[in-house]
Amino acid sequence: MAGELVDNKGRGDVGWQWPSIHPEGRKFGLIAVGISLLAAFLAWETVAWPMAFLSLGVFAFFRDPERVVPQDERAIVSPADGLVSLIAQVEPPAELTMDDGSGTSGLPNQPVTRVSIFMSVFDVHINRAPIGGTVRRLVYIPGKFVNADLDKASEENERQHILIERQDGVSIGFTQIAGLIARRIVPFVKPGDTLAAGARVGLIRFGSRVDVYLPAGTDSKVLVGQKVVAGETILAEIGEQKLIEGIAQ
């Protein structure tokens, strides 16, 4: 199915398939499998069975399913699977607004809508580009590992800021944030790379969060408490402002 064009009129031939395992996780899964087999060979059942289940969990954590990315110039797609935990008006991080000497401008230094997506250990942890364009910044910041569901995690935790600029000058900044269990942010891209919307940009190991800073004059199309899917769920449409209310049921 990869690369196949589908639409909302029924075009496209699709079917369910097992998701692939990202190479970053295969080594961890194989290590767990090896320990399980060794323990089974030595008749250490109390070790063999837990390690067998752990290996399945590791492979599941690093699964990398295909996604159908909406092809709409106005659309900002979710960069992460997970729960929309916070939506707030904030000023973007200094790393995304300051002059970094590269000759390219950052985000405007004014309040914008930030959508925070919390990823549990059960979610897919491959992060994707919310728009197509050129990677202008990739800034890694060491920090703490407090609960990624807390608002202060945006400023205190280990994190990585990414800025993508479209050809028309529209820029989107988003931040990968490590959490209580997460201990490494792994980038797949570098400044200067040109990406399509929904392209894989990196992952965060074992539970984390992604903050997305929408352009000025753009409201979120998702609600607090909503589950979103990386590369598929439309978080916002550029330039659209509208109150959307929901009822949890």
Rank of each mutant, 00 (worst) to 15 (best):
E158K: 10
G103V: 09
S154R: 13
A182Q: 08
R114M: 12
F122L: 14
K144N: 15
V112P: 05
S102P: 10
D149C: 07
V121D: 08
M119A: 11
G101L: 11
G143R: 09
P142V: 01
G106D: 09
R136Y: 02
I131V: 15
N109Q: 13
A178F: 03
S116P: 03
G179W: 06
G106L: 04
T134N: 11
L138G: 06
R137G: 11
L138V: 09
V146P: 12
V112K: 05
V115H: 12
I172N: 03
V135K: 08
T113D: 14
G106T: 06
V124H: 01
R114E: 09
I164F: 01
S171V: 00
A148E: 14
R183G: 14
G106I: 06
S102G: 15
E165I: 01
T97A: 06
L107V: 05
A153H: 06
N147W: 09
Q167E: 15
V135N: 07
R136C: 09
A178P: 03
Q110W: 01
G169L: 04
Q110R: 14
N127R: 02
N157G: 04
N109W: 01
M98D: 15
L150W: 08
G133V: 05
I131Y: 05
T134G: 07
V139E: 12
L163Q: 02
N127E: 00
K152N: 10
Q167W: 05
Y140P: 00
D149Y: 09
A129P: 04
F145P: 07
S171R: 15
Y140H: 15
L163T: 00
Q160E: 12
V139L: 06
E165D: 10
S154V: 01
E155G: 03
I164D: 04
T134I: 12
F174Q: 03
R166Y: 00
G173E: 01
Q110Y: 04
E155Y: 07
T113P: 08
G132H: 08
I117K: 10
R159H: 02
V112C: 12
